[in-house]
Write a protein that binds this DNA or RNA. Structure first.
Lengths: 217, 217
DNA sequence: TTTATTTTTTAGATTAGTCTAAAATTTTAT
DNA sequence: ATAAAATTTTAGACTAATCTAAAAAATAAA
């Protein structure tokens, strides 16, 4: 069984590697886990000994299939809890992340299967992110982050990353919710901020914000 | 904020002191927390420094009002979660304890208030134990553990302690549920086992079992 | 292609919670 | 009332997860 800390590292590596594909660097992990590179090296050795990651000194780290499965289980739990908090308890979507970060570490296979059933086996969490099934399988439509789209683009918002409460509050205010149609009107050269249209209203958003919005191709 | 370990000590002291009344001994704590006396002494010093307990060397320890409030919050969370697991998710009453032991440490005032509201502000958990309100207040009818009753007693089961799954399974099988009427038919001198009647059926139960059943006076 | 810079790892130290063994104190028994 | 037994505390050590500072390796620049 993984410790809470080990689980958090595995999850961080999963996200940094874009679902277990890419090789991840020590400093990247240190940054997202709010630790120092030296600590990361120590932990990677532990994860490697447990066969959760393949590690090559000075090169980087990659999740094994076992590590990937662990990461997907944690993500499944996180997203099911977020769904519960919003749908059943009436949390606002910007209030759920920190609580779900705690709940995702509860150890009980029975609990998570019963929660899934209680919620009606949802495919998406409140931010539009896909919920892996009990085998870790999930489907995500082809997408791109909004900052990579061209001027003139129009499509639909698939997902909004759930990490920051104030960002989510802002997105809700301008109506940037999963499922909503969106147009990219123009882009500023100097800071890559962009003007977008949602519900016939125009807004100017920074590049940082646009990176957190995933849209259809 | 308390660490998970600190929370568990405070909770253990609360239960051992019978709701914060009695002075608790080092060895008693060591036994219920599955640690050694030396570890308990260390932890008690920490709790004392945080003003959660009043501690006198070689004498014992007692919860302060602050410590009592912390304990009651943890117990409130534990019992609300147990209620949720049984009522909403369909857990059997002997399956909930270990999961609730984890869930009770989730830190979010909002979560627990919303959960309470979702459940309809229940007064009792599935084992018949009272759920403290958000101020830590609760009422428990006058009661005694069954092993302290006299032969010929008849009354109603109030509570069944929730610690052991196999005990709960057994109690469910013989129908020893909160609210049920019960008669004490006879008691064996040599081992204090007793014969009881529930639903017109007679059963012989050990003293250990009888200690875990709380009944009306 | 050698030097400078950046990144990563190693070495050694720290904190929380735990342990064993020994010392101190209290309780029990003679 | 004193000795024996039990309990509690202290002292010193261990593990997991972290840190800083220094050494090693890889990358970038001249």
């Amino acid at each position: 069984m993984l410790s809470l800390t080990e689980e958090n590292y595995v999850k961080a590596i999963y996200h940094l590697s874009e679902s277990g594909e890419k090789v991840v660097l020590t400093n990247e992990i240190a940054e997202t886990t709010n630790t120092k590179a030296a600590s990361v090296t120590d932990m990677i050795k532990k994860l490697s000994a447990k066969n959760l990651v393949a590690y090559e000194k000075y090169y980087g780290v990659q999740l094994t299939s076992k590590g990937k499965a662990e990461a997907l289980l944690i993500i499944r739990k996180h997203r099911l809890w977020e769904t519960f908090l919003v749908q059943s308890l009436g949390f606002a979507w910007d209030e759920v992340h920190d609580v779900a970060e705690q709940l995702e570490h509860i150890q009980s296979a029975l609990l998570i299967e019963k929660l899934d059933s209680f919620l009606g086996y949802p495919k998406m969490d409140p931010h539009g992110e896909p919920i892996p099934d009990h085998k870790g399988k999930f489907k995500m439509q082809p997408h791109r982050s909004l900052d990579q789209q061209h001027v003139g683009y129009h499509g639909v918002i698939i997902t909004v990353k759930d990490s920051d409460a104030s960002l989510l509050k802002y997105l809700e205010k301008i109506g940037a919710l999963p499922g909503k149609k969106l147009k990219l009107i123009s882009r500023q050269e100097f800071d890559n901020s962009m003007e977008i249209e949602i519900n016939k209203n125009k807004f100017s958003i920074s590049r940082e914000v646009s990176k957190n919005i995933l849209v259809t191709l």
